[in-house]
Computed example of a mutant assay.
Amino acid sequence: MRAIKSDVAVPAATAAGAARPASAGRTSNPLGEAVMTIDSAAALDPAVTNPEHYHVVFENERVRVLEYTDKPGDRTTRHAHPDSVLVVLSSFRRRMYAADDSSHDLELTAGKVGWLAAQQHAGYNIGDTDSHALFIELKEGARTETGVLGPIGPAVQ
C-alpha cells in the first residue's frame, strides 16, 4: 500500500475581524465572530445542491463519504461541509469562495490527505485537469465554521 502524505495547508479565507453577512443558521462565538451551525449545513448538503459533482458512496451513523468529481471550468453552488477528512485522488487547482464571497486559490496534489474544518463555500475548477476527491464527513464532534477554506493539518509520513 502506498503511503499518503498530509501536508496541505490553506490560510484563513478572510482577514481577522472581517465582517460576515448574517444569515439563517448562523450564531456568534464568544469572540463575536459568526459561525455556521449544523442546521445550516443540513440545508446546504452538497449531494443535494450539487448532485452532478457530489455522490454519496458510503454512509453509516458515524460518517458519510462523498466522491467529488468535476472538469476544468466547472463550478459548484454554495454548500456546506461538516468537519471532514479530504482525500485528494487527482491533482487539481481550485478557487474557493467563502460565505462573504472572498476567494482563495489552492492547488491540491494527488495522494494528499488533509483536515477540512466545517465550512460553507462554493468552488471553481480553475485548472486544466479534472478534480477527483473523497470527503469523509464526520457526524459528531465540533460543528462550527473556523473561517479556513480547504484542507489543513500536519504532515503524516
Rank of each mutant, 00 (worst) to 15 (best):
S90T: 13
L106Q: 13
A18R: 03
V85M: 07
L134G: 02
A133D: 06
A19S: 09
S131C: 09
R2D: 11
E33A: 11
E61R: 09
A80R: 06
G141S: 08
G150Y: 01
A99E: 05
P21R: 11
V88K: 00
H79S: 00
E140H: 13
R75E: 12
G147H: 03
G111L: 00
N29P: 04
I126T: 08
T144I: 13
G32N: 03
T14W: 09
A43N: 10
G153A: 01
M96F: 14
P30M: 08
E107F: 12
L108E: 02
S131D: 12
H132F: 12
D45R: 05
L138S: 15
R143N: 15
G111P: 01
R78V: 09
A16L: 11
L138P: 05
V113N: 00
V65C: 01
R2M: 10
A118D: 03
W115M: 13
A22Y: 12
L44H: 05
S28I: 12
E33I: 11
L134I: 05
D130Y: 03
T14L: 09
L31S: 15
T146G: 11
G150R: 00
D100E: 08
N50F: 07
V35D: 00
K71V: 08
S90W: 07
T37D: 06
G150V: 02
P151D: 06
D130V: 06
T77Y: 11
H53F: 15
A47D: 02
L44G: 01
S91C: 04
L116V: 14
D130C: 05
M96G: 08
D130Q: 04
T49M: 13
D74S: 14
T14A: 13
R62P: 03
V8E: 13
A122K: 06
T49D: 07
D70A: 14
E61L: 07
S102W: 02
R26K: 15
L66C: 00
L108I: 02
E61C: 06
A133R: 00
V113G: 01
